[in-house]
Design a protein around this nucleic acid. Structure first.
Lengths: 105, 105
DNA sequence: GCAATATGCAACTATCGGGTTGCAGGAGTA
DNA sequence: TACTCCTGCAACCCGATAGTTGCATATTGC
């Protein structure tokens, strides 16, 4: 079981501002400028965060006229959750086996 | 739906070395010194990482004589996974509703 | 075409975090 | 007691990154 591309996703999710952005996008698609109107950071900072989120597949850009709206991809979050759960279960399984053997000695 | 204490957990999971440590602990409890023998970083670096992991509840210390072994807590990973999945599902639900309304216009 | 608005790019600052070395302190063992 | 081994703490270095300002570029609407 490899962690593969999982770590960058968590790194992307380990920032409060990015969660603010994701939460805002969770209420509807929006552009960097629109998000800058609601959050206490500049548009450029938000643009950088959106680039990070897009890089790990949590968000996708949609050109609408002269603006670029961003859409959150919920399925990526669900897939990450499934992989996380599988890894945790695997650890539990192995460790339980180890302790079982230890007890029998 | 609040992200609560979720973000620090992701920040903790967003580092390769910490995943190496978690993976090693997934094969059995170990002390910082023991881990330093297997990983290409110093014991002190590992000690810092273990402190971070303990802080977010992914790992717990167990004193055994003069050494401190660490144990990975798989259930914390599972809980994080569930919360993540719930958030993604909530976004999908809301956004689907928004698009439904948009189509009807 | 022109003004307005939105994005893109670049340079810069400052803080955070991962990693190191060095040393002091504590707990087990001969 | 003396020795060994493991942990804990502090200071330091450096690269990454979150954030800013400033300007150039493109696209829509009048």
């Amino acid at each position: 079981m490899s962690t593969g591309t999982l770590v960058p996703v968590f790194a992307a999710l380990g920032d409060d501002t990015r969660w603010s952005i994701l939460a805002a996008l969770g209420e509807g698609d929006a552009s960097a400028s629109a998000l800058a109107g609601r959050l206490p950071v500049t548009r450029q900072a938000i643009a950088k965060h959106l680039a990070v989120l897009q890089e790990v597949g949590l968000v996708e850009p949609i050109r609408v006229g002269r603006e670029v709206r961003y859409r959150v991809i919920g399925s990526q979050l669900a897939q990450t959750a499934r992989r996380l759960e599988a890894i945790g279960a695997e650890w539990d399984r192995r460790l339980a086996a180890i302790r079982q053997i230890a007890e029998e000695l």
